[in-house]
Simulated scan of single mutants.
Amino acid sequence: MTLVAILLYLSLTALATPTPLHLLTPQLLSLPPTLAPLNQSTPVPPNATTLTARAQCFIQPQDPRAPRLFDADHNDCLVAVRLLPAATTPYTFGRRPDAQVRLPYARSFRTCKVIIDIMDEMETERLRWVDICDTLEAPRGVLNRCLGQVVLPSLGGRTSVGERGAMQAIVVGQAWRAGAAG
């Protein structure tokens, strides 16, 4: 099943079932983590910078009809993030034909896929590639909060990027077998 088919399935089942795919929002030194459905993102305060946006970690869906998520290796994800352009020049990101960077945009390495997308077809966001990479690698970013933790499954997660939070940086695991090309 392709990633597009999985995302389409998840969005359709979100309407039919109460919580097909859950996000895990880990708390430092807290009691059990809070669960929230994928289609209910935590709002980012309007004055939040990209580095203060909180990562939401994926957990395996309980619905047996939902696709199973793959583990993502932290080191593979570091490489996948570094495969994104390292540009420090601001670009306009969006799905519109006039956007400098057309979304969705994805890079992968072995067990990890990084997807940059925007939720609204007409929305655009202006930021630098380096801001996206920094957000993913920040102490509260997806790579540090959702991968390589003993208490969390390493299934990836998502976070808002950009000043308005209209864009999402998503990290997911993907099937990969040792010996296959990266």
Rank of each mutant, 00 (worst) to 15 (best):
N75A: 13
A5Q: 15
K113H: 06
P90W: 11
G182K: 13
L28R: 14
L143H: 05
H22L: 15
A166D: 01
Q149I: 14
P18T: 04
R96K: 14
C77A: 14
T34I: 14
N144C: 05
V44T: 06
S30C: 09
A16I: 10
Q27V: 15
R158K: 07
Q149H: 14
G141I: 01
L15M: 11
T13W: 00
L21P: 00
A175Q: 13
R107D: 01
R164Q: 03
M1L: 14
D71A: 11
P33H: 10
M122V: 06
P139N: 11
Q100P: 00
Q27G: 12
P139G: 07
S30E: 07
A99D: 00
G157P: 02
L23H: 10
P43T: 08
L10F: 09
A99W: 04
P64G: 01
A5G: 10
V151G: 02
V101T: 00
A80T: 05
R54K: 11
R128M: 15
R145V: 11
L8K: 15
R107H: 06
S30Y: 03
V114K: 08
T124K: 01
L10I: 04
T49R: 06
D71T: 06
L8M: 07
R177I: 10
Q60W: 01
V79M: 08
T124E: 07
R177G: 01
S154Q: 05
A80M: 08
R110M: 13
R145S: 12
T42P: 03
T25S: 09
P64S: 07
A180I: 13
R95F: 04
L69E: 10
P46D: 08
D134E: 15
N144I: 04
F93T: 02
L51R: 05
F70W: 10
A138R: 04
T50F: 11
V142A: 07
A99N: 05
L147F: 08
I59Q: 13
T17E: 13
V101A: 00
P90N: 13
C146W: 02
V114C: 12
W176S: 11
A53Y: 01
V114L: 09
C57S: 10
L28C: 08
G179D: 08
T19K: 02
A48C: 12
I6W: 01
T92A: 06
M119P: 02
D71W: 09
P90R: 06
S160G: 10
T42V: 13
W129A: 15
Y105V: 08
G173D: 06
T42W: 07
C112F: 09
